[in-house]
Design a protein around this nucleic acid. Sequence first.
DNA 1: GACTTTTAAATGTCAGACAAATGAAAAATG
DNA 2: CATTTTTCATTTGTCTGACATTTAAAAGTC
Lengths: 244, 244
Amino acid sequence: MKIDPQNPADLSAQIAQAIKAAIVSGELIVDARLPSEAELADQFQVSRPTVREALKRLAAQSLIRTQRGATGGAFVNRLNFEDAYSQQITTSTLLLSMNAVSFDTACEARYALERACAPLSAERRTPDHLATMRTEIFRQSQPGLTDEAFCASDVAFHRALVDGAGNPVLSYQLAGAVEAMQPLMNMITFSARSRESIIALHTRIADALDARAAGEVDAALVELETYTRQLARDVAERRRKQSG
Amino acid sequence: MKIDPQNPADLSAQIAQAIKAAIVSGELIVDARLPSEAELADQFQVSRPTVREALKRLAAQSLIRTQRGATGGAFVNRLNFEDAYSQQITTSTLLLSMNAVSFDTACEARYALERACAPLSAERRTPDHLATMRTEIFRQSQPGLTDEAFCASDVAFHRALVDGAGNPVLSYQLAGAVEAMQPLMNMITFSARSRESIIALHTRIADALDARAAGEVDAALVELETYTRQLARDVAERRRKQSG
DNA sequence: GACTTTTAAATGTCAGACAAATGAAAAATG
DNA sequence: CATTTTTCATTTGTCTGACATTTAAAAGTC
């Protein structure tokens, strides 16, 4: 962890990389205390601000946490699922918005992954998961709901479905795919009729999960995907006509 | 993007958060140039080192890139799939290694997601994908291959399968699940016989993809998952006996 | 006009300093 | 002696000012 070529540019990046490697390799274990900034500056033969920039890079990735005071310092952070979720969601969202990913591509990925969870969820969902889904369905049926709120509730519904699989790794992986779709979904205007159709499918899904009917969940998800993509095509069509 | 409560701690984190919000919201678009460090210091009423720490936090997440020189500065970075891949892989790997995720949980998630790709891959895989898979199968059959190299080739094989779906969003989401398994897989000792079994299943998968037989791919993946989990159980059993 | 030199602007780095938090040791108190 | 209070050293957070390096544009030179 002491290697540092004498390329006097990007020193903080090199130091961050060295410490990161030590963490990933297990050389630095969870809750281990790093040397103080002054000591690190001495070890790496750089100034304290440079060390600090390196540490901030690591803090941005939730790899370390810092604490002030006598017994303070920088500690290797236990990466928890919650932090990983939010990182994944931002990354996925930006990835989609910055790379002109088509609605179809994102939608296909999302539903493919979600369908992968369906059989497990049908088997393991708890009453809690079902209750959450019913609540969201009820919320979606409220009149006067904005499109944004409808989409947010839609995300909550699908997250409950995914969480029902009882596999935190799956939930983590899916978080990005489901949440990153929201900005794209927000571009769709949901008419009263389209909301009705979606709610009907959501109800079918909830009922099927209730009955532990994996096949029926899958069928409903396929229909939902088809319908969602159709809605997006309609929006695009409408926009094309308006501008043309 | 100018809000900054007068809580004089974590200033760099607050500034990073403000700029990040501006990027996510689209207020700052790709390739937009941020004000110079001196200007930012002036705007936020902090010193330049503090601004720099904030910028390094963003750079660590690939949200910005910096360039020296007269026309240099910090620019909003287009988050590309490659950067997102590697971020996801580190995060997933650390998440698994730091949270004592069981082999079964990780394995289940991985194969559930991979099976989600299988039908798409059967439909869209190109000769290139098949060639990669055949190459890796050949590599796996070489005698004298270390367990680590065998696992690395296994990862490459499965990535080709996933990439065959031709959906970059899927590939991105899967990257974490597939690669993060590698350290866990490395704990398994692959006997000559177990390698043979895995290679046979890999061959079945490649053949099925070649024939565009989605159902057969799925069946082989299920068998591979079962077999992998059995191998892990055997290792655990052996360890238990040794220590007991 | 083509090439070289200068210059200005920006990031990268450094040195030294002070503020603030914090836990532990030392001192005071009953 | 036990408990509370005070002091203090350590560490991070921030600031100021400076210099080095890179880079592209402007100025100068042939």
